Simulated scan of single mutants.
Amino acid sequence: MSAFLIRTAFTGFSLWIATLIVPGLNFVGGSTGWEEFGIVVVVALIFGVVNAFVKPIVQLLSIPLYILTLGLIHVVINAFMLEITAWITRNTTHWGLEVDDFFWSAILGAIVISVVGWLVGLVLKEAV
């Protein structure tokens, strides 16, 4: 359970960094700092659940595309997971993650989230 919470915290951090860097990717809702923090945490939880349940199915179905594109389809699949997370938060709560368009906001957001997550993983391996 604690590993899931730590991973969720780093996912929230990665999402927050992505919203600062990528135009067209932002959080909607929250008027105070604590409300915005809560939105980031909830979106990170939803993003983690989407990645845990939907992403493996999509990856399994897209094995031929992984071979054909030498793995570059992974960026598109990560962008698709961002879009699904934005759709869930937009249609259930009217606050959360907002992605303006798939090309280029979601693609660049997926790249930034992957790079930040990788860097955080490197720093944590060195610290532990």
Rank of each mutant, 00 (worst) to 15 (best):
residue 66 Y to A: 04
residue 64 P to W: 08
residue 65 L to H: 07
residue 71 G to Q: 04
residue 114 S to W: 13
residue 106 A to C: 01
residue 66 Y to K: 11
residue 127 A to R: 13
residue 76 V to D: 11
residue 28 V to P: 10
residue 38 G to Y: 04
residue 64 P to H: 15
residue 91 N to D: 06
residue 63 I to N: 15
residue 47 F to C: 07
residue 58 V to K: 00
residue 128 V to I: 14
residue 101 D to Q: 14
residue 25 L to Y: 00
residue 62 S to R: 13
residue 68 L to I: 12
residue 98 E to G: 06
residue 122 L to K: 15
residue 66 Y to S: 09
residue 75 V to N: 08
residue 97 L to T: 12
residue 44 A to G: 00
residue 4 F to E: 07
residue 14 S to D: 03
residue 99 V to D: 05
residue 93 T to C: 06
residue 13 F to I: 12
residue 31 S to Y: 15
residue 60 L to A: 10
residue 50 V to F: 04
residue 23 P to L: 00
residue 92 T to G: 09
residue 1 M to P: 11
residue 9 A to K: 09
residue 82 L to E: 06
residue 118 W to S: 11
residue 30 G to M: 07
residue 34 W to I: 12
residue 41 V to Y: 11
residue 26 N to F: 08
residue 13 F to L: 14
residue 61 L to K: 12
residue 125 K to L: 14
residue 14 S to C: 02
residue 27 F to K: 10
residue 89 T to W: 01
residue 67 I to E: 07
residue 125 K to T: 07
residue 37 F to W: 13
residue 59 Q to V: 00
residue 80 F to M: 04
residue 96 G to R: 05
residue 25 L to T: 04
residue 126 E to T: 14
residue 34 W to H: 15
residue 70 L to S: 04
residue 91 N to F: 12
residue 10 F to Y: 07
residue 82 L to S: 04
residue 28 V to L: 15
residue 3 A to Q: 07
residue 86 A to P: 00
residue 42 V to C: 09
residue 60 L to K: 06
residue 20 L to N: 08
residue 11 T to A: 09
residue 25 L to Q: 01
residue 58 V to P: 02
residue 95 W to Q: 10
residue 43 V to P: 04
residue 1 M to K: 03
residue 23 P to N: 00
residue 94 H to K: 15
residue 6 I to C: 03
residue 24 G to K: 11
residue 27 F to Y: 12
residue 42 V to T: 02
residue 104 W to F: 14
residue 89 T to F: 01
residue 127 A to L: 14
residue 84 I to W: 00
residue 29 G to Q: 08
residue 40 V to H: 08
residue 90 R to I: 11
residue 43 V to N: 10
residue 74 H to Q: 03
residue 43 V to C: 08
residue 84 I to G: 04
residue 38 G to C: 05
residue 72 L to G: 10
residue 1 M to D: 12
residue 43 V to E: 09
residue 23 P to E: 01
residue 76 V to E: 07
residue 114 S to P: 06
residue 27 F to N: 10
residue 76 V to T: 07
residue 86 A to V: 02
residue 84 I to T: 01
residue 67 I to S: 00
residue 15 L to K: 10
residue 83 E to K: 04
residue 90 R to G: 09
residue 24 G to W: 09
residue 26 N to T: 09
residue 47 F to T: 05
residue 78 N to K: 05
residue 18 A to E: 01
residue 67 I to L: 15
residue 125 K to I: 06
residue 85 T to S: 11
residue 26 N to H: 15
residue 6 I to A: 08
residue 75 V to S: 06
residue 22 V to M: 04
residue 38 G to K: 13
residue 85 T to N: 05
residue 6 I to F: 12
residue 14 S to E: 01
residue 54 V to I: 13
residue 10 F to R: 01
residue 19 T to D: 03
residue 79 A to H: 00
residue 75 V to K: 04
residue 75 V to Q: 13
residue 124 L to M: 15
residue 110 A to L: 03
residue 91 N to S: 06
residue 80 F to R: 01
residue 47 F to R: 10
residue 8 T to E: 11
residue 51 N to I: 03
residue 88 I to H: 09
residue 81 M to W: 08
residue 121 G to F: 02
residue 3 A to M: 06
residue 20 L to E: 10
residue 45 L to F: 10
residue 54 V to E: 01
residue 49 V to I: 13
residue 36 E to I: 13
residue 107 I to T: 03
residue 74 H to G: 02
residue 87 W to D: 09
residue 45 L to G: 11
residue 19 T to G: 06
residue 26 N to S: 13
residue 106 A to H: 03
residue 106 A to W: 02
